[in-house]
């Protein structure tokens, strides 16, 4: 078994600070394994974490790490990625930090789609502060702030983050270990905003109140609650583990229609002299004609010439061949109008 992932962990700080049986240790270990497997090192990887139990994760990684203010983990990660696009940015945080305090940042960072990978340690409780009901607590769960059961429905991250392509949303648990490792790997190689929702156990502050004695009993509960769905999915339902992803659909611009005007032979056009042309300047209900490269065009339908003798520097009833050199537009503006004669 390959144990080279230990280079990425600060082993002199071990044993880590989390409770016995906590799922954050498993998240830390498996993320370090996946990063090592991809060949990323401390030269090109940054770990960013927020506040909470899971905020300690970046401190145990032997990488450049940022421990950010509460809820601002995604803004910091996006800033790092914007300034240094060559760095791989991984975000290690929890559900309280990402979805409740930083919920607004989660919405708008997923909309802007930066190339960062978010690992959300979703233990469905505010663990660090003692087990209050959080935004991901399932309905009916007894916590210290909801002793008769949580009355509200939890935030459906699977629906929230998969509303608009491109997206990558994976839900997994720390018990389904092979699926867990696969999700981490797929999220790290995904180009764009990828979010891994890792359902984790908090045995000391949540599990004991729910009646579980050991962390393994909680793992068995995850096994009963969730089932893995295979293959490519657009959305994940309730209690489904899997990967939902979609790439951005390329919008094909509609092809511009090219109107083909039949070439009118010069000889069949009505001959004009400059004096004749000069009379057609729009005054007295007469049409507006101008000459360009030997042809006479009818500019009566142009809104800029309507009812006046001149439009800025162009004068009606004149040969405007030389004007096109100093004009800011091209000669295609003249060709839009019908040719009515030729200049002799």
């Amino acid at each position: 078994m390959d144990r080279s992932y230990k280079d990425l962990l600060k082993l002199r700080r071990f044993p880590h600070t989390w409770c016995p049986g906590c799922g954050i240790g498993a998240v830390l270990k498996n993320v370090a394994m996946a990063v090592k497997e991809l060949g990323w090192s401390d030269k090109n990887t940054v770990a960013v974490s927020g506040i909470g139990c899971s905020g300690r994760m970046s401190g145990y990684m032997n990488l450049d790490a940022v421990h950010t203010p509460h809820g601002r983990v995604l803004t910091s990660a996006e800033t790092i990625k914007t300034i240094r696009p060559d760095l791989n940015v991984i975000v290690l945080s929890g559900d309280g930090d990402l979805t409740s305090i930083g919920g607004n940042h989660l919405l708008h960072t997923s909309r802007r789609n930066p190339d960062i990978t978010v690992f959300c340690n979703d233990n469905e409780i505010y663990g660090l502060t003692g087990g209050q009901a959080g935004p991901t607590t399932p309905r009916g769960t007894k916590t210290i702030t909801s002793p008769r059961g949580e009355p509200y429905s939890p935030l459906r991250l699977g629906h929230l983050l998969t509303q608009q392509a491109p997206y990558f949303y994976a839900r997994t648990t720390v018990y389904h270990l092979n699926h867990f490792k696969k999700c981490i790997h797929e999220a790290l190689v995904w180009k764009g905003f990828s979010f891994v929702d890792i359902v984790s156990d908090c045995i000391e502050l949540n599990g004991r109140r729910l009646g579980f004695k050991t962390a393994h009993q909680m793992f068995k509960w995850f096994d009963e609650r969730f089932h893995i769905v295979e293959g490519e999915r657009d959305h994940l339902g309730e209690n489904e583990l899997g990967i939902a992803r979609a790439v951005e659909e390329e919008v094909v611009p509609p092809a511009e229609k090219v109107e083909e005007k039949p070439e009118i032979p010069m000889a069949s056009l009505k001959p004009f002299t400059l004096e004749e042309l000069h009379r057609f300047d729009g005054t007295g209900g007469k049409p507006i004609y101008i000459a360009y490269k030997g042809k006479v065009y009818d500019l009566s339908s142009s809104p800029l010439f309507q009812g006046e003798k001149r439009m800025r520097c162009h004068i009606a009833g004149k040969d405007l061949t030389k004007d096109i050199d100093v004009a800011p537009h091209g000669e295609d503006l003249v060709f839009k109008f019908p040719a009515v004669g030729r200049l002799v």
Partner: peptide
């Protein structure tokens, strides 16, 4: 011995 917190996961998954 120093890293172990006696969560007994190894005992139960064996």
């Amino acid at each position: 011995e120093t890293y172990c917190k006696r969560c007994l996961l190894c005992v139960e998954v064996c």
